[in-house]
Design a protein around this nucleic acid. Structure first.
Lengths: 342, 342
DNA sequence: TTGTAAGCGTTATCAT
DNA sequence: ATGATAACGCTTACAA
């Protein structure tokens, strides 16, 4: 692979001039610039990233760490986002370095990457409350963007999140407006920030509607069809069964739907279902039977903002100016109907 | 972050000696070595990877490229393997750089990474026949390992594959031994090497059993429940419907199973099902109703061999000595039974 | 056993 | 407008 030196030798110039020509410095003679550029093309020159990194102190890599659970499973959404991130980072000529966390110390993989000076920044997915990773990165001053927002109040790091409180509030308010009073909420894992926010939104609309003790209607769990199924089973065998389900994902809604079918219950006649729709391919809300009412906010939409924020951060922007909260859109389809009169 | 120079200054040594001490050169005085090591620890020294790379000419990174289809979907298995790879590469102190292919030129993302001198090698997943990526990497002499084997005869690149011919042969032979004569095969995408091999194995056992024109019983498609469902529909509405299904994945088997249930057909009484089981979490063969007979070969098992092969390749081993074919195990459960007498 | 010096391929700071 | 030179942090002949 040709180097700056090769081009310089070829043209009888110094490497410095070639570097300037190639990097568009204003002082270089137009003709020289042309010659350099054509020679570069001819010799198939590519700047050596490693050398650039050494001198700039930047690696050009962004770290993404997957926290695999004990079962080594990872939710689809993580990959959706990671794939999209890779694409958008490529537009900035940055690459994504991917690591799987197997230790029980969530900070370890970040430390490893930091200490190897392997990355310029991190994108953190699925933050939890008092996230140790965030604390660590803040402490050492490493740039990072959080997908989701860990804390409730204002924070001083960059993030992209959807308004989970409003999403859950809108969804459950739709149900209370339809007269539902016993609404089961199959929420995400309890330690996740989004689950906390959605609980809050759910509670708000319950209070508005005069429903007491909303918490007894919430179950936290992984967003899988299995969880949806067992959650439906659990709630529907109570003495006061719910007339509606709110699911944190279409995946869980799938499980609920399966349970209803298997037990001769009809949606929406007997039970209404609303879900939050991340628009992942494996469980399309519109292909449900009946088509699912959702609060929709494609996971995929997070990729570009996250990559952009990272780019600006690396250009020295203030994290506090890089905080985006987008909102989910309520789409009413056929899985919701007035509460049955009992 | 402390550098070699810092340690040298601290100890009144030269950077060279410190480097030697830290890299376990035999000539260094034992006491010096101790002092250097403790100073390194005390100053929290980490070698600067970028500098090491520049001097060694190696990046310490392995490229993995995801070929996303038009829908931007990617099968679960890709991520299973990629995650595992990341873990095992970390053991070699290598990192995984992850890229998504969006262009229609499958070689482009590889070229990009190569020309940036970003990676030392690639792991290629889902090879197709006459794979352009393989041709490119061979041409430029970049090390790579293929997960799967693209060609039928002997090849001169490193790979890890399962014996797809035998797997399909064993599975379909089980069915022919049970008296089945009309066996539908929901195979993988036609351009994939594994699908070609499984077709071959299927044909072999059909010939053994005297079944004519096996190809008319094969449908190629993406291994999804949707494909399984529509494939079952297609085959079962023929004038001579199959009495058994062979599926290239438990995901497709799920679709077949769903179709049977929805149409009042019983497995295994009316229709037997055998699948190949990659042991991915989203469709566990043993949790099927009834539990699924499979040829089992966990995708996950490929990760360590692939990482190991890459390591050896980078240490100068001959690709031809790094070719592993493992075999799938036939596990008979309850989804297979003698063919119904018609 | 240790030090000196060159070099990896860039970019940046001086001169000229 | 261009060239020398140093620097980034490390490894490795070669010298001592």
């Amino acid at each position: 692979m040709a180097t700056l030196k090769d081009i310089a030798a070829e043209l009888g110039l110094s490497p410095a001039t070639v570097s300037r020509a190639l990097n568009g410095f204003p002082e270089v003679n137009a003709r020289t610039k042309e010659k350099v550029e054509s020679a570069a093309k001819r010799l198939n020159y590519r700047p050596n990233k490693t050398a650039q990194r050494l001198v700039s102190g930047k690696s050009g890599m962004i770290g993404v760490v997957l926290m695999a659970d004990k079962n080594r499973t990872a939710d689809q959404t993580f990959f959706e986002v990671t794939g999209g991130l890779s694409r958008h980072l490529a537009e900035q000529d940055r690459d994504l370095i991917f690591q799987v966390d197997i230790s029980d110390d969530p900070v370890a993989p970040y430390k490893r990457l930091v200490e190897k000076s392997a990355v310029d920044g991190f994108i953190i997915q699925g933050p939890s409350r008092n996230d140790a990773r965030i604390a660590y990165l803040q402490e050492i001053g490493m740039p990072f963007v959080v997908h989701g927002k860990a804390e409730v109040g204002p924070v001083d790091y960059a993030f992209y999140d959807i308004d989970n409180i409003s999403a859950a509030r809108d969804a459950s308010r739709l149900l209370t407006d339809l007269g539902h009073r016993r609404i089961a909420f199959l929420n995400g894992l309890q330690d996740r920030a989004f689950a906390r926010d959605r609980r809050r939104g759910f509670q708000q609309s319950c209070i508005e509607a005069g429903i007491e003790n909303p918490d007894k209607w919430i179950l936290f769990g992984p967003q899988t069809p299995q969880f949806g199924y067992s959650g439906a089973e659990e709630f529907l065998s109570r003495s006061e069964p719910p007339t509606a389900f709110l699911c944190a994902s279409t995946l869980a809604a799938q499980g609920v739907s399966d349970y209803l079918k298997k037990n001769g219950l009809s949606c929406p006649t007997d039970v209404s279902i609303v879900a939050h729709d991340d628009a992942i391919v494996t469980a399309r809300a519109i292909e449900f039977d009946p088509p699912l009412t959702v609060t929709r906010s494609p996971m995929r939409d997070a990729c570009k903002p996250l990559a952009d924020i990272m780019g600006q951060l690396l250009n020295g922007a203030n994290p506090k100016d890089l905080q985006i909260t987008s909102s989910a859109e309520l789409i009413v389809r056929s899985s919701t109907r007035s509460a049955p009169l009992i």
